[in-house]
Simulated assay, not measured.
Amino acid sequence: MNDTHTVDVPITALTTSQRKRRQVMEAAARLFMAQGYGATSMDAIAREAGVSKATLYAYFQGKDALFAAIVGEACERHAEGRPCCLTDHEDDLAGALVALGEGYLSFLCREEVMAIQRVVLAEGSRFPELGRAFYESGPRRMIQWVAGWFAALQRQGRLRPGDPAVAAEQFLALQRGSTLMRRMLGVPPAPDAAEIRAVVAAAVETFLRAWGTGREQ
C-alpha cells in the first residue's frame, strides 16, 4: 500500500487540543495508508505525530477508535452537502435522488476514500475491529440518514410503504456496481462526471420503479 492521502480539513481557528488531535489523525492516516493497519502500532503513530503515548491515548483508546475517527470525519464532511440536495430539489424527488447519488458515488470514488476502503478490505478479516469501525462510522451512518429521509417521504406518500432501511440499502447499492469495482481495482479510466451522472440516472430510474408512487414531482 503506497497511498498516503490524508483527510484534508482546515486547521484554522482550532484550539491547541483540536490541532493536536488533528495532528494525530493525519499521522495515523499516513501510516495506515502507507503500511497497513496491522503493521501500524500506536507507538509508531505517536512518533509520526510528534506526541507522547500518553497524549495519543488521551485522544484515542486504540487503533480502532483512531481509524473510526478518520472514517467518521471523512463521512461528516461528505454529509455537510446532503441537506442542500434536498433543499435545492424540494419539489423534485427524482432530482434530489440524482443529486444525492452523484454526491455519494463521487465521494466513494475519491482517492483518499478508496485508500481507506482498500485498507479495510485487505485487513478486515484479520482485524474484525477494523471492519466494525469502518462500517459503524461510514456505511451504517449513511444508511441511517437515507432511511430517515425515505421514512419522511413515505409519510408524505412520495415513496411506497415498506422498510425505509431496506429502501436505503437498495438505493445506495444501485449507485455502486462496476464503476466502483473498477475504481477499487485501479482499472482505468477513472470514472468522470459524465459516467457518474449516467450511472446515477439509471440507478434512480430503477429505484423509483420499485419504490416510487407516481408522485415524484
Rank of each mutant, 00 (worst) to 15 (best):
M1G: 06
D3V: 09
H5I: 09
D8P: 00
V9G: 08
I11H: 10
T15R: 15
T16V: 07
R19A: 12
R19L: 13
R22N: 06
Q23G: 02
Q23I: 04
Q23R: 15
V24H: 02
M25D: 07
M25S: 04
E26C: 08
E26R: 15
A27H: 07
A27K: 01
A28E: 05
R30W: 02
R30F: 01
A34V: 03
M42R: 10
D43W: 10
I45S: 06
R47Y: 08
E48L: 09
E48M: 06
A49C: 05
G50P: 07
V51T: 09
K53P: 02
A54V: 15
L56F: 04
Y57S: 12
Y59N: 15
Y59D: 15
F60I: 11
Q61D: 15
K63E: 02
A68H: 02
I70N: 06
V71Q: 00
G72Q: 05
E73I: 12
C75P: 00
E76T: 12
E80M: 11
E80D: 11
G81R: 11
R82K: 12
P83E: 12
C84A: 14
C84W: 14
T87N: 12
T87F: 06
T87H: 07
H89T: 08
H89V: 04
D91C: 01
D91Y: 10
L93W: 01
L93G: 05
A96S: 09
L97I: 02
V98A: 06
G101F: 02
E102D: 08
G103A: 00
Y104Q: 04
L105S: 03
L105D: 05
L105I: 07
S106V: 04
F107P: 01
F107A: 10
E112A: 13
E112Y: 15
M114D: 11
A115W: 02
A115E: 13
I116Y: 06
Q117K: 15
R118H: 13
V119N: 11
V120Y: 04
V120N: 06
E123H: 10
E123G: 08
P128S: 08
F134A: 05
Y135T: 05
Y135A: 10
S137R: 00
P139W: 00
I143Q: 07
Q144G: 03
V146G: 00
V146H: 01
G148Q: 08
A152Q: 13
A152D: 13
Q154I: 09
Q154Y: 13
Q154E: 11
G157N: 10
G157A: 12
R158P: 05
R160K: 12
P161S: 09
G162Q: 07
G162H: 00
A165Y: 09
V166T: 14
A167R: 04
A167H: 13
E169I: 03
Q170L: 15
L172M: 09
A173F: 06
Q175W: 01
R176S: 07
G177E: 05
S178V: 06
T179S: 02
T179K: 02
L180A: 11
R182G: 01
M184P: 00
L185Q: 12
P188V: 03
P188D: 11
P191W: 07
A193N: 03
I196G: 05
A198H: 09
V200T: 14
V200Y: 04
A201K: 14
A203G: 10
E205L: 13
E205H: 14
E205G: 10
E205V: 11
F207L: 06
F207H: 10
L208A: 04
R209V: 14
R209C: 11
R209L: 14
A210P: 01
W211K: 06
W211R: 13
T213V: 05
G214N: 12
E216V: 04
Q217E: 10
